[in-house]
Computed example of a mutant assay.
Amino acid sequence: MKTELSLLNRTLELYRYPKLSHDKLQAWDAGDEYLITHVEEQNFNRGQHILVLNDNFGALSCWLSSQHVVTTVSDSFISQQGIHANLAHNHCASVNVISSVENWPNHVDLVIMQIPRNNRYLTWQLSQIRALYGDSCQVIAVNKAKEIHSSTLKLFEKHLGHTTTSLAWKKHRLVFSQGDQPNPPHVEPYTTWRVEEEAMTLSNLPNVYSGESLDLGARFFLPHLPGHAKYHDIIDLGCGNGVLSVKLRQLNPDATITSVDESYMAVESAKNNILLNHLSNEKARFVANNCLDGFSAQTQDLVVCNPPFHQQQAITDHIAWQMFCDAKHVLRTGGELLVIGNRHLGYDKKLEKLFGKRQVKLVATNAKFVILQATK
């Protein structure tokens, strides 16, 4: 794994978070390099206030902090931890790192953006830039050239203003935009919709997975969630918009339910959806975290989990393995981990290795998904 980002006679040592001993993925991409090189070539005056959006592990924040005042906005708890760690490791100047649900600064001179995969989140960020800063600052964004479609550029023009692009470099392209759209449409932060078969209403902030309809995995999982007096303490790990938390609260009204996700917008949406469905949050906790870091051992009776198989742009299975290990750690003896996943991911083998073959059983399956229960 390459850890040294060397550009323009300067070197940063950067790591992904969490730092893994055999990680083959590096903490930055060619898009970061393209943005950094372009900004340096513009010779901006020192001390510019730069807003950095969607910095994966801090390459942009670390580099720009040497000459400018930097505020970094991220929806990812994991990215934030990586940014903080890399800032400290490289002895960088202070950067104001805030979450996606906090207020942005009132004034910035330049916005630097890694274009997010989620178009609803991109639309919301563009509308925020236009509303807060107008045409007083320039926006420079980057993505892989194959991911910048004509529809992407139309979003920039519709919600921000005049937009152009650069030539491709290392399969990446820059997008330049100015907030001069005279009549940008208003963008609501929440999207609200009804799940009729569950008598449930859900509302999602822009960067929440499956934010306009119930995803197939959750739809299959919901009828198999348990309700029993023996479940005093429950964790919804990777809670997303909190749909499983809502159902678990309906089935287990007296339990303490903790909704955990690495997305700040997911955690906030889960919290909102408990209230939206007229459920008590008296015994509810909502935590942005890297899996179950810092949770005490043997404190839970049930963990439900729908693991992601990617981190930012990278496909990886280490998150699922960490979730399973963390779940076993926090479960009391006799406690249960309930997992849903695509059939081809082989979660049964991972769970058998961790919990023992006799402790893993099949709960339900269909053509696409499998639900497994592992008992500690």
Score class of each variant (00 low, 15 high):
Leu216Arg: 09
Phe355Asp: 02
His278Lys: 15
Gln114Ile: 14
Ser259Met: 03
Tyr347Val: 00
Gly211Met: 04
Ala266Trp: 09
Val370Met: 13
Leu20Ile: 09
Leu126Gly: 08
Trp124Ile: 04
Val339Arg: 04
Val287Cys: 10
Asn252Cys: 07
Leu362Glu: 15
Met1Ala: 14
Ser151Glu: 14
Arg117Phe: 08
Phe220Glu: 07
Ile274Met: 14
Asn366Pro: 03
Asn366His: 05
Arg10Thr: 09
His186Glu: 14
Ala27Glu: 11
Ser99Cys: 14
Leu60Tyr: 09
Val95Ser: 01
Gln298Phe: 05
Thr72Asn: 14
Arg285Ala: 11
Ile140Trp: 07
Leu7Phe: 10
Asp301Gln: 12
Ile235Arg: 02
Thr152Asn: 02
Ile140Cys: 15
Ser245Gln: 06
Ser100Lys: 00
Leu5Tyr: 13
Val267Cys: 01
Tyr264Met: 03
Ser151Phe: 10
Ser213Met: 12
Met1Cys: 07
Gln178Trp: 15
Ala314Pro: 00
His344Tyr: 04
Pro307Ala: 05
Ser245Tyr: 05
Glu198Gln: 13
Lys230Pro: 00
Ile140Gln: 12
Ala218Lys: 06
Thr201Trp: 13
Asp23Thr: 09
Cys305Ala: 05
Leu292Cys: 10
Ala27Pro: 08
Arg219Glu: 13
Val363Asn: 10
Asn143Trp: 11
Thr163Val: 09
Ile257His: 03
Gly217Ala: 09
Val304Tyr: 02
Phe295Asn: 08
Thr299Tyr: 03
Ile319Pro: 00
Glu352Lys: 15
Gly227Arg: 09
Glu282Cys: 01
Ala85Ser: 12
Arg120Met: 02
Gly242Gln: 01
Val260Cys: 06
Gln42Lys: 12
Leu7Met: 14
Leu110Phe: 12
Ser213His: 11
Thr375Leu: 02
Cys291Pro: 00
Leu251Tyr: 07
Val260Gln: 06
Ile78His: 04
Gln312Ser: 15
Ile140Asn: 12
Cys305Gln: 07
Leu372Lys: 02
Glu197Met: 13
Pro18Asp: 05
Leu225Arg: 00
Arg343Pro: 08
Glu212Arg: 12
Leu126Val: 07
Asp55Ile: 07
Asn103Ser: 15
Val243Asp: 03
Thr37Trp: 10
Glu282Asp: 13
Asn56Trp: 13
Ser177Asp: 06
His68Glu: 13
Ser269Lys: 07
Lys2Pro: 11
Met1Gly: 13
Thr258Asp: 06
Thr152Ser: 07
Leu122Asn: 03
His107Phe: 06
Arg219Trp: 08
Gly227Ser: 08
Lys230Asn: 04
Glu41Tyr: 01
Arg332Pro: 02
Trp321Tyr: 13
His68Val: 13
Ser136Leu: 06
Leu12Lys: 03
Lys328Ala: 10
Tyr347Glu: 00
Asp55Cys: 07
Ser66Asp: 12
Phe77Gln: 08
His89Thr: 12
Ser21Arg: 09
Lys24Asp: 11
Ser269Thr: 08
Pro18Thr: 08
Glu197Leu: 05
Lys230Phe: 02
Leu110Pro: 08
Leu222Asn: 01
Gln138Val: 10
